[in-house]
């Protein structure tokens, strides 16, 4: 049952990602990206990281994808639909990506990985205690980064 769900979500994620880089229409590419993000949220659920599955849907599907969609609509030129979407080095990029995937697979496939431990202690309460305990300084730094990004985005995009 778990394996079937894994195949389903992994297929959803990879289908979304492949369609994202293959589709010529950018709005459709964003919709394919949303499919990939939802599949990833399913994978996080299978890994018993429920909170991360929830924020994956909230932040990526709810915020990032909508932001990208707005950027596509704001910058889309009414131009020749037959204009090339890839640069003239796309084949080189494909070779690099394929070679990197081959290298990663060659590294992790022969290794003996531990099997799944019985239970995890993943609770939102635990994560919250970690974030205000040992990770308090990175947590505060992340809040400063978000504030600076907010101000920077407003200043950059202002008329």
């Amino acid at each position: 049952m778990e394996f079937v769900l894994f195949i389903l979500f992994a297929g959803m994620t990879l289908t979304g990602a492949i369609l994202m880089v293959a589709l010529h229409n950018l709005v459709r590419a964003v919709l394919a990206m949303i499919l990939g993000f939802v599949g990833l949220a399913g994978l996080y659920l299978l890994l018993e990281a429920e909170f991360l599955a929830a924020i994956q849907v909230l932040i990526y599907v709810g915020a990032v994808a909508i932001l990208v969609l707005f950027a596509v609509m704001l910058t889309q030129r009414v131009s020749d639909p037959n204009a090339p979407v890839n640069n003239n080095q796309a084949w080189l990029g494909f070779t690099v990506a394929l070679g990197f995937f081959g290298m990663l697979s060659a590294v992790f496939a022969p290794l003996k990985w531990p099997s799944l431990p019985e239970q995890s202690v993943s609770t939102v309460e635990n994560l919250g205690k970690q974030l205000i305990g040992p990770y308090a300084v990175p947590f505060e730094a992340a809040s400063v980064v978000l504030l600076v990004a907010l101000l920077g985005a407003i200043i950059l995009a202002r008329e």
Binding site: L14, A17, V21, A90, G93, F94, V96, A97, F100
Partner: peptide
């Protein structure tokens, strides 16, 4: 690697 291809080729 799919993301890498997208970043390199588009």
């Amino acid at each position: 690697c799919i993301g890498l291809y997208g970043a390199l080729a588009r």
